[in-house]
């Protein structure tokens, strides 16, 4: 039945050919997209007029980033290191949008669309991280024995809570007991530090138990007791 075949073909053609309303929808979508792009270009130009570090530059960058994210047009990939690559891309974006800080030239709106510019950098970082990831896996597979041997033994086996508890209970200098809320010697830093160690008593409970306002208690702890902790235990290196 050759006729039927022909009919089928023509039907397929009709089905594939976008209707007039589809064309209109595509055209109006494109107009909307280009209008958003135009306004983004304007916003970038306006933002870059203000010096780096100025409030208006910060407010502008915040709005540009928000608009780019909310447009949903940025490259997305389900890679374990995607978030790392994306954060590097944002830093690159903010540092080179108006002035070239880490590149040779700043972003040039005449040369590329902002999404193209960002996607190119993002995809570059994804590729770098993919290669680095493979390389590290290779090393791990090939040297697994060696790696197990080089894992350092934990330096300190006493949990931090226990260290703090031992220090507060001992109160070698007597300063924790000596520091207390006026006329309330029982409400001293030793007691509060021990009661605030996990599993800690809530401030509300302590206030009720000792019949004192939560803000007095908490303010005393912050101003008088926390400094002892800060002095006695070393901070992390940031």
């Amino acid at each position: 039945m050759p006729n039927l075949e022909n009919d089928n073909i023509s039907e397929v053609k009709i089905a594939n050919f976008p209707s007039e309303s589809t064309w209109q929808a595509i055209a109006s979508h494109q107009t909307a997209v280009s209008r958003v792009d135009d306004s983004l270009v304007k916003l970038i130009a306006e933002t870059c007029q203000h010096p780096p570090g100025s409030l208006k530059r910060q407010l502008g960058l915040d709005r540009i980033i928000r608009r780019i994210i909310n447009s949903g047009r940025l490259w997305i990939e389900n890679a374990p290191y995607y978030e790392d690559a994306l954060q590097q891309t944002w830093l690159y974006f903010c540092r080179n949008l108006c002035e070239a800080t880490t590149t040779k030239e700043p972003y040039n709106p005449q040369r590329s669309n902002i999404f193209t510019w960002l996607d190119r950098y993002l995809k570059g970082r994804l590729k770098d991280m993919y290669l680095k990831n493979c390389h590290e896996q290779n090393i791990r597979v090939n040297n697994s024995e060696e790696i197990i041997l080089t894992i350092p033994a934990p330096v300190n086996t006493i949990p931090l809570e226990d260290q703090i508890r031992a220090w507060a209970e001992a109160d070698a200098t007597g300063e924790l007991v000596a520091t207390h809320i006026a006329n309330r010697p029982e409400l001293n830093c030793q007691l509060l530090i021990l009661r605030r160690l996990p599993p800690k008593s809530q401030w509300e409970e302590l206030a009720a138990e000792f019949n004192i306002s939560m803000s007095t208690l908490n303010s005393f702890y912050r101003r008088k007791c926390i400094p002892y902790l800060q002095r006695h235990f070393q901070p992390d290196l940031g």
Partner: peptide, 23 residues
């Protein structure tokens, strides 16, 4: 960091191991 606002993690209370446990 994206907006160029300088921070100092090391001087943050949240960066102090004992403070994190006690507050």
């Amino acid at each position: 960091a994206m907006l160029g606002i300088a921070t100092n993690l090391k001087d943050s209370e949240s960066w102090h191991p004992a403070l994190r446990v006690c507050a």
